[in-house]
């Protein structure tokens, strides 16, 4: 099969002459980018790093009480897109974001929006656990304190406990809250980071390969936690593990060379994808 043929979408109704001229690439995303109850609505998002365009006209809703998994080969733009959702890309020199990204109807790239509180509303968990070099308690208490979310020590204590409980870590650390967060195991550190994110009452949690540095047991605990967190938050997760995407998410978005190629129910994407590129990627034929 030629490269061109292998890249042509199976759903021929979505192909335009312009797509074929570009080697079978689709001009639009296959599947429904919308969700009935969106927390974040992204439309026509383009990102450039200097002259290089990393994301092209991406549109996607992040739904309430839903995990959306973003998958795709390295360099496809999935992490770049994730980082747009809480303006983390603002910190990168030469990065330019264009398009509309709304959180509960509010344009997050509006000049009046302060990115610091935005990053509390749209929290992020990174690939490598990154607890502050402080005590377990302080790791969780730091955010609420600087955002002024509590009025008393008792309130802060309660918030720390609640956050650690939601992160499934309380029983393991309740007797050593004053010990350094960096002394915990990798899986515990990652849950501490999730507790830290939860403590500032986010609406959306972004996770960029949160289990890639963890062993299978710690990964299973985090996946279980993600499923529980879904009841209260909207979650977007970038992962290189197909199985993880299939296990934890309700919707899956497949990125390729900066395009959002296909979005759909996770069950559909992993059993019957509509785009040849999606199928080739998830079945391990490239990537």
């Amino acid at each position: 099969m030629s490269t061109l043929a292998s890249e042509i979408v199976r759903d021929t109704s979505a192909i335009t002459a312009a797509d074929l001229a570009r080697g079978g690439r689709v001009s639009g995303t296959i599947g429904d980018i919308t969700t009935p109850d969106p927390r974040m609505v992204c439309r026509g998002v383009n990102v450039w790093y200097g002259a290089k365009q990393a994301i092209k006209e991406v549109g996607l809703d992040i739904g309430k009480n839903q995990v959306v998994a973003m998958i795709g080969p390295s360099g496809c733009g999935k992490s770049t897109f994730l980082r747009c959702l809480n303006r983390m890309n603002d910190t990168i020199d030469g990065c330019r974001v264009q398009g509309s990204i709304q959180l509960d109807g509010q344009e997050i790239y509006d000049k009046r929006v302060d990115p610091v509180p935005l990053r509390a509303q749209v929290g992020m968990v990174f690939q490598k656990p990154n607890p502050f070099p402080k005590s377990i308690y302080e790791n969780v208490a730091y955010g609420p304190r600087i955002h002024g979310l509590t009025n008393s020590k008792a309130e802060l204590d309660a918030l720390v406990e609640t956050s650690l409980r939601k992160a499934g870590l309380w029983n393991e650390v309740k007797d050593r809250l004053d010990q350094p967060g960096t002394g915990l195991s990798g899986g515990q550190q990652q849950r501490l980071c999730i507790a830290r994110t939860i403590a500032v009452s986010p609406e959306v949690i972004l996770m960029d390969e949160p289990c890639s540095a963890l062993d299978p047991i710690a990964t299973a605990i985090i996946e279980e936690l993600i499923d529980e967190l879904r009841e209260q938050y909207a979650i977007a997760i970038v992962t290189h593990s197909m199985q993880q995407a299939a296990r934890v998410s309700q919707r899956t978005a497949y990125f390729h060379l900066g395009d959002l190629v296909e979005v759909g129910e996770t069950n559909q994407i992993f059993t019957n994808p509509r785009h040849q590129l999606t199928e080739d990627y998830i079945t391990g034929r490239f990537g």
Partner: peptide, 10 residues
């Protein structure tokens, strides 16, 4: 070994 998906699973 492979945890097949999509067409491979079918």
């Amino acid at each position: 070994r492979r945890q097949p998906t999509a067409v491979d699973l079918r």
